[in-house]
Design a protein around this nucleic acid. Structure first.
Lengths: 330, 330
DNA sequence: TATAAGAATGACAACGTTGTCTTAACCGGT
DNA sequence: ACCGGTTAAGACAACGTTGTCATTCTTATA
């Protein structure tokens, strides 16, 4: 910047003014400065700038996902990027792998780089460690799962309601014995979905058979094995509900292997690519990951724009998409 | 930091020494400093630190992908994150959407934040604009596609060879009329794949029928329409090769709609989730996105560690995975 | 013509760190 | 008691910017 000022024959401060678009610069000097910037291929150093600025904004946010490579996370990521980029804000992304320690260390890395805000899909359950950070002015929004011991903006989907809708759909098709495959119960969304299953059965006065429930399953293979086992209880279930997309795929694999995919109904939570091309196509309770990301990012930027109102808790609804597998009759 | 120094009763510089693990600090002072850091919940400011440090390292890199939400990109992303995080380096991710202007502006945002390095899946074809950046010391690696007008480290997969293997496989099954669906020819990988198709046909002395080729297709729907049209030429192809995963899905959709999925062979470039559960399961030429990411990140860090040797061009091979759709006989 | 008000510009300090250099304290050997 | 050498600690400047304030110049008004 010093060199630019020298070449343009102006002071450092004038260059700074031109770069920041401050009005009090004559057209003459401004164009001289711009020419010098061009000629020297000068690049503004935002790190230094944000260090000195009074608002201290770095124009970067941190995004903590379960895994940047999973489709739900990356759809969220994409929408957040869209909202952020429109404002010239860049996104640091990191994967927690459902590991509380990794969550903390990633967030520490984010904050040590002085991000303006954090969007968090939490893996842990106690977020009091973020209190200081918040007091220091970092905006934050929790997405998909709630924060623990921290009063903070949150955007969720209606996990319990969505599951109840899926279960009610199966019951309406005549099913009475519905198996359930669930993810780690420590994940709040998984617990809510399981609650939805239990509550809907109860509401419809159906007895819940504990032999038809398998929880704490992680990944396609575990789900496939568990589904296989469920299908061999007697009497067997006539329908399965899978509480997450990988579990749905695992369940479908098991059904295919036993050649039961046209005889046992299947409804899954979370939509996934190609669900419509399987045989039968899979009925799902679809979350709109993009909408979730958009809502979270917009809430974050509202805070960054100075909104100091009490914490907002938004809940997006989910949609049952019937495609065939959920309409198989007992 | 000043407050920490005051509380511990030492100078600023001593606190800095403790934080950076410099040896010349007595155990006594070091522990007093650490206690003060704890008590004041002090957080090191890396932005200021990297501004002052002689090496100027920000411990952040920029990653330009086609779209953070597409499975290939996000698998790449994940492996890069793994390598980077092991060294305490954070990743800014951005999506170019195949738009050259967006590529440039994202890279400008990255560099204005003084990232230490860039990993780029390029959308544009002229990267001479990066010359200054490189001269300024930013490390960079191109992945999946080559750079234009810039001599730089690159990690690719063998697109032409992979395609030839796929086509050879179809020919070996007895196919003589093989349709081809290709992505935008401006994308280098798409052009290479098409070349692989043409060259393999030529090598096996088969005539290429231009009516069986559809290029510049973007997305599932365009591919589905194009595949439908190809299948109605006369005489029709007995096999299709799709040059990209979305095109493969589109082609499969078309085959299903015409109920030809068990009579016309299909091989696709790029593996995708659930390819093995379709009916028939899809034979593909699989790229290992994770390996690509790992190789790129490792090369980048080699440069950041001071490697000044001439540009490296690495080419990873692809693997034909036979699952059924490619083994349908004419 | 004198003067106040406003606009354009620059000098300087400061943001939170680390590199460099200096000083102080201590050690063992004569 | 003195020396050279080592080690620990601090003073100060600097990284590349922007906020604050002072200065100069212009213009309109009395």
């Amino acid at each position: 910047m010093r060199e630019v000022a020298a070449l343009a024959g102006v002071s450092l401060k004038t260059v700074s003014r031109v770069i920041n678009g401050e009005p009090a610069v004559s057209a003459e000097l401004a164009s001289r400065v711009r020419a010098a910037i061009e000629r020297l291929d000068y690049r503004h150093n935002r790190a230094a700038s944000s260090l000195r600025r009074s608002d201290g904004k770095s124009a970067a946010i941190g995004l903590l996902l379960e895994d940047v490579a999973n489709p739900f996370s990356s759809a969220l990521h994409r929408e957040i990027e869209n909202v952020a980029l429109r404002r010239g804000v860049l996104v640091f992304a990191g994967s927690s792998d459902e590991d509380a320690a990794r969550e903390r260390s990633l967030i520490a890395e984010f904050t040590s780089r002085r991000v303006d805000g954090l969007i968090i899909v939490p893996a842990s359950h106690d977020h009091s460690y973020l209190l200081n950070e918040r007091r220091a002015g970092t905006a934050m929004v929790f997405v998909d799962r709630p924060a623990g011991f921290l009063d903070v903006d949150t955007v969720l989907t209606d996990n319990e309601g969505g599951t109840r809708e899926g279960i009610a759909h199966l019951i309406a098709q005549g099913h009475r014995r519905i198996g359930y495959l669930g993810d780690l119960q420590t994940i709040a969304t998984a617990a809510w979905r399981y609650r939805g299953y239990m509550n809907e059965l109860a509401a419809q006065r159906l007895e819940a058979d504990p032999r038809l429930v398998r929880l704490n399953l992680r990944g396609i293979e575990k789900a496939e094995i568990a589904a296989g086992e469920l299908l061999s209880t007697s009497p067997p279930p006539t329908a399965l509900f899978a509480g997450q997309n990988l579990l749905t795929i695992g369940a479908y694999r098991a059904l295919r292997k036993l050649n039961l995919h046209k005889r046992i109904a299947l409804v899954g939570f979370d939509d996934f690519l190609l669900a419509d091309l399987l045989e039968p196509a899979i009925t799902v309770v679809a979350q709109d990951a993009g909408a979730l990301g958009r809502a979270a990012a917009e809430q974050l930027f509202r805070r960054l724009d100075g909104d100091r109102s009490p914490s907002v808790h938004e809940v997006l609804s989910n949609r049952l998409i019937t495609r065939g597998s959920g309409e198989v009759r007992p």
